[in-house]
């Protein structure tokens, strides 16, 4: 079968071409970063740290480990949590560049070790301590050390979060709480201030004053964020198509691993949190996926039948020609 041989050659060259410009080229272009399975024990931080910082980081994460071993008392933690709730509340105002996020599902979507580390030292925990050369007190959450600092106290607050702030969480809530204070998602109609409110324009003037007021508020919030972080964090509407899943996963786990020096803090998502955030990113960034998966097999089936019939027709037409 000469024709099959020719077909084989075409296929081999086509596959070689594909391999070269896709998997091979992309493998060479992007450095490979291993994930750590969403275990937040500081091992990556210590490894990356400069010589001067290595010891401090080792000590910090060793302390975190010790606190994690303590048994937290959720009831006692509730009292201390009241201090957290002073800032982490609905309608909170921007504090030092960023609005404190809601902690309604903190126990469900964030890792326990990460929460302990965060209360102990927010800059170290989120691996952005390089942005605070004068110490964590300059961090918007730096004052936490003045409120909750005793190891048992930290363990209690985390126990409280895990017991009482851990209800069922939707993908949208997970995104809003973990990412939404810095990143908008315009396809999901989310700004840094939360959901875009429904407003009505004045029928006589055609102007929507409430929408304009809201836009001004968003612009103000974004300006504060950009001043604090150095740049306005990107809108995440279709980030799921702009970056590979592996990149996003390792980046969220430890932003410094993919983009050294970035102002993005680690968010400390656990498996459930990560899954929910990805579900939301997929919802806004790749909404056609369910319909695509449903339609694909039908279209392919059609063309298989089409091809089979075409083959029979060809056979009939060429009968007696050879």
């Amino acid at each position: 079968m000469k024709e099959l041989k020719i077909f084989g050659i075409v296929v081999v060259f086509t596959l070689a071409l594909y391999w070269g410009v896709e998997p091979f080229a992309h493998g060479q272009m992007h450095k490979h970063v291993e994930g750590h399975g969403l275990v937040y024990d500081g091992s990556a931080d210590i490894e990356e740290a400069s010589k001067e910082k290595k010891e401090a980081k080792k000590a910090f994460w060793a302390d975190v480990k010790k606190i994690a071993a303590l048994k937290g008392d959720a009831t006692a933690g509730e009292a201390s949590y009241m201090m957290c709730a002073g800032c982490h509340m609905d309608g909170a105002a921007n504090m030092g560049g960023v609005t404190p996020p809601s902690l309604d599902h903190a126990g469900a979507i964030y890792d326990k070790n990460f929460l302990i580390a965060l209360i102990k030292d927010p800059a170290m925990a989120t691996n952005v301590d390089h942005k605070y050369p004068n110490g964590t007190m300059a961090h918007p959450m730096g004052s936490v050390s003045a409120m909750v600092s005793a190891p048992q106290d930290i363990a209690n607050v985390v126990a409280y979060l895990q017991a009482k702030k851990a209800g069922e969480v939707t993908p949208k809530e997970a995104f809003t709480e973990a990412c939404g204070r810095c990143h908008a998602n315009r396809y999901g109609k989310l700004t840094q201030l939360g959901e875009v409110p429904k407003t009505k324009s004045n029928i006589k003037t055609g102007q929507d004053i409430d929408a304009l007021k809201y836009a001004q508020k968003v612009a103000t919030e974004q300006a504060a964020l950009a001043d604090y972080l150095g740049t306005l964090p990107p809108d995440l509407s279709i980030i799921i198509r702009a970056r590979s899943e592996h990149f996003l996963h390792t980046f969220i786990e430890n932003p410094q691993s993919q983009l050294a020096g970035t102002a993005m803090p680690r968010t400390g998502l656990n498996h459930e949190g990560m899954e929910k955030v990805f579900a939301y990113l997929e919802e806004t960034g790749d909404p056609s996926k369910p319909l695509r998966e449903e339609t694909g097999p039908k279209v392919l089936l059609f063309f298989f039948i089409f091809t089979a019939l075409a083959f029979l027709w060809k056979k009939a037409m060429w009968k007696g020609h050879h």
């Binding site: 089409f306 091809t307 089979a308 075409a310 083959f311 027709w313 060809k314 009939a316 037409m317 060429w318």
Partner: peptide, 8 residues
């Protein structure tokens, strides 16, 4: 007829 088959 052959074209259509290849197209399929």
């Amino acid at each position: 007829s052959k074209d259509i088959f290849v197209m399929g």
